[in-house]
């Protein structure tokens, strides 16, 4: 599988008057065609910033200070705003958490879809409307002809999120960045949206970067997962292995902390402390103050990502010595 999206050593910093705050540091990842990469982490881990950086939507004071982003082999992180705008929607689609803010309340669903299709493709109005209908059907909206003439506020949350997905798919993008697409939805609707995302990746070959804090959503949807902590990737690899046999102590802690249905009523494992603020990231491995297995070098040197059993882990417990 060739990489459709490749991120190399990405670093994003917020310029403040007290100096730069590094929100994303040295993140490298790849997503192949038809693959769903989950990106999981707690608030402040830098997952949304990464997604925004790939979309080229970082606003000052945030900016990319190092690294590169490649889409189908060509760099997109240094494109002019106008070129990036054309790229978004054409080759990269975006789905955000709150479907209500992603839609314009003053236009009908149909107007918004047709308008988006027309800006990316030179087709007639008739053909654009047909395409919009087909898209609405594809994202599982019942009676699309009726919905086309409705306004966003007339739809329920789940329906709106489907419309947002349809909008993101208008130009048949190669890559979709989905930032917390199910967080604002109820569990029953959430399951439907997960199913929809999976189907899209499978049938259209779209690469999906699924950003969420919900490990359950990742486990059901993603092929591979990147676990972020304080702006760095702690562990990245196939979902099944990371969920069932995490290597990084942070991932282990995270898995233990999730209440699981049907488990015994024993105590939940907890990670003491909280994610550090951007202006107080500890030296060395950022997780070391909360880690139960820290070694001597953990508070001095930042562990490099090493390959272990088909995944990459950035932890001194799995350093060069144990690679064998």
């Amino acid at each position: 599988m060739s990489a459709l999206l490749e991120v190399r050593h990405l670093r994003v910093a917020f310029e403040t008057r007290r100096g730069p705050l590094v929100a994303v540091d040295d993140i490298s990842l790849q997503i192949g065609e038809g693959e769903i990469l989950g990106m999981v982490g707690e608030s402040g881990a830098g997952k949304s910033v990464t997604g925004t950086a790939i979309l080229g939507l970082l606003e000052p004071p945030a900016r990319i200070t190092a690294g590169e982003i490649l889409l189908e082999g060509s760099r997109i992180d240094n494109l002019a705003p106008e070129a990036m705008r054309r790229l978004r929607g054409k080759r990269i689609g975006a789905i955000f958490q709150d479907p209500l803010t992603a839609l314009d309340p003053l236009f009908t669903i149909g107007q918004q879809l047709v308008e988006t299709i027309l800006t990316h493709d030179a087709v007639g109005a008739r053909a654009a409307r047909d395409r919009a209908l087909k898209l609405l059907g594809e994202v599982g909206i019942p009676a699309p002809e009726k919905r086309l003439d409705q306004y966003p506020h007339q739809l329920s949350g789940g329906m709106r999120q489907r419309v947002v997905i349809a909008l993101a798919l208008c130009a048949e993008p190669r890559l979709v960045i989905a930032d917390e697409p199910t967080t604002a939805l109820d569990v029953s609707t959430q399951a439907q949206i997960i199913e929809l995302l999976k189907r899209l990746a499978r049938t259209r070959g779209t690469a999906v970067l699924l950003i969420t804090h919900d490990m359950g959503v990742i486990a059901e949807t993603a092929d591979r997962v990147a676990v972020l902590y304080a702006g760095r990737i702690a562990e990245i690899g196939p979902v099944r292995e990371i969920v069932h046999a995490p290597l990084h102590p942070y991932t282990t802690g995270l898995m233990g902390a999730i209440p699981k249905l049907g488990a015994l009523r024993s105590r939940l494992a907890q990670i003491d402390g909280a994610m550090p603020r951007l202006d107080a990231i500890p030296p060395g491995c950022a997780f070391h103050p909360r880690c139960t297995q820290r070694l001597a070098q953990c508070d001095r040197e930042i562990p490099r990502a090493v390959a272990v059993d088909g995944r990459e882990v950035a932890c001194w417990l799995h350093g060069e010595s144990s690679r064998g």
């Binding site: 109820d186 569990v187 029953s188 399951a191 486990a219």
Partner: peptide, 26 residues
Amino acid sequence: RMLLAAVPDLAMTGTSRTPVAGEIPS
């Protein structure tokens, strides 16, 4: 039953299940 079936489950990696139909009315 529907609610229980809809909870995303860590053990369910890679498997598919029948999602719930419909949405909550106002």
